[in-house]
Simulated scan of single mutants.
Amino acid sequence: MKELTLYSRIECPLCEYAESMLLTLGISYRTIDIDEKTELMQQYHTRIPVIANAVQELGWPFDEQQIQTLAGIA
């Protein structure tokens, strides 16, 4: 399984939903708050939630199958 990163921000309902999808699937991930760095805010502001591995990113909208494929378990 590939390591995933969830790009998110506080008080983002879609980000919370994406996180719940990851938890439901049992996929480990780390969360990065895009508000903590200006360059991340510029890159992801209109695209969050974004789930990424070392090679590819999924910007919203995505589904559980796409997350599993990104994690290398589908």
Rank of each mutant, 00 (worst) to 15 (best):
residue 1 M to N: 13
residue 1 M to C: 15
residue 2 K to G: 04
residue 2 K to D: 13
residue 3 E to A: 10
residue 4 L to W: 01
residue 4 L to D: 00
residue 6 L to A: 03
residue 6 L to E: 01
residue 7 Y to K: 02
residue 8 S to M: 04
residue 9 R to P: 05
residue 10 I to H: 08
residue 10 I to M: 13
residue 10 I to F: 12
residue 11 E to M: 09
residue 11 E to P: 03
residue 12 C to I: 12
residue 13 P to M: 11
residue 13 P to D: 05
residue 14 L to S: 12
residue 15 C to S: 07
residue 15 C to I: 01
residue 15 C to N: 03
residue 15 C to G: 04
residue 16 E to K: 10
residue 16 E to G: 08
residue 16 E to M: 11
residue 16 E to V: 13
residue 16 E to Y: 14
residue 17 Y to H: 12
residue 17 Y to C: 07
residue 17 Y to D: 10
residue 18 A to G: 05
residue 18 A to Y: 01
residue 18 A to S: 15
residue 19 E to C: 08
residue 19 E to F: 02
residue 21 M to H: 03
residue 21 M to P: 01
residue 22 L to A: 07
residue 23 L to F: 06
residue 24 T to N: 09
residue 26 G to I: 06
residue 26 G to T: 04
residue 28 S to L: 05
residue 28 S to N: 11
residue 28 S to C: 14
residue 29 Y to V: 02
residue 30 R to P: 02
residue 30 R to M: 04
residue 31 T to C: 09
residue 32 I to D: 02
residue 33 D to P: 02
residue 33 D to N: 09
residue 34 I to R: 00
residue 34 I to L: 09
residue 34 I to S: 01
residue 34 I to D: 00
residue 35 D to H: 15
residue 36 E to I: 08
residue 36 E to H: 15
residue 37 K to S: 09
residue 38 T to H: 14
residue 38 T to A: 13
residue 38 T to P: 02
residue 39 E to I: 08
residue 39 E to S: 11
residue 39 E to T: 13
residue 40 L to V: 06
residue 40 L to H: 08
residue 41 M to K: 12
residue 41 M to V: 05
residue 41 M to F: 14
residue 42 Q to R: 11
residue 43 Q to Y: 06
residue 43 Q to E: 13
residue 44 Y to K: 01
residue 46 T to V: 15
residue 46 T to I: 08
residue 47 R to M: 12
residue 47 R to L: 15
residue 48 I to R: 00
residue 48 I to H: 00
residue 49 P to K: 01
residue 49 P to F: 01
residue 50 V to H: 01
residue 50 V to S: 01
residue 50 V to E: 00
residue 50 V to R: 00
residue 51 I to M: 03
residue 51 I to H: 00
residue 52 A to Q: 05
residue 52 A to V: 06
residue 53 N to T: 05
residue 54 A to H: 14
residue 54 A to W: 12
residue 55 V to R: 11
residue 55 V to I: 15
residue 57 E to V: 06
residue 57 E to W: 02
residue 57 E to N: 06
residue 58 L to N: 05
residue 58 L to Q: 05
residue 59 G to K: 06
residue 59 G to M: 09
residue 59 G to A: 14
residue 59 G to Q: 09
residue 60 W to R: 04
residue 61 P to Y: 03
residue 61 P to W: 01
residue 61 P to K: 03
residue 61 P to M: 06
residue 62 F to I: 04
residue 62 F to K: 03
residue 62 F to T: 04
residue 63 D to C: 08
residue 64 E to R: 10
residue 64 E to F: 08
residue 65 Q to T: 10
residue 65 Q to G: 10
residue 66 Q to K: 14
residue 66 Q to A: 11
residue 66 Q to N: 07
residue 67 I to T: 02
residue 67 I to K: 00
residue 68 Q to A: 13
residue 68 Q to G: 06
residue 68 Q to K: 15
residue 68 Q to S: 08
residue 69 T to W: 14
residue 69 T to R: 10
residue 69 T to H: 13
residue 69 T to F: 06
residue 71 A to E: 01
residue 72 G to T: 04
residue 72 G to Q: 07
residue 72 G to P: 06
residue 73 I to C: 14
residue 73 I to F: 07
residue 73 I to Q: 13
residue 73 I to T: 09
residue 74 A to R: 12
residue 74 A to V: 11
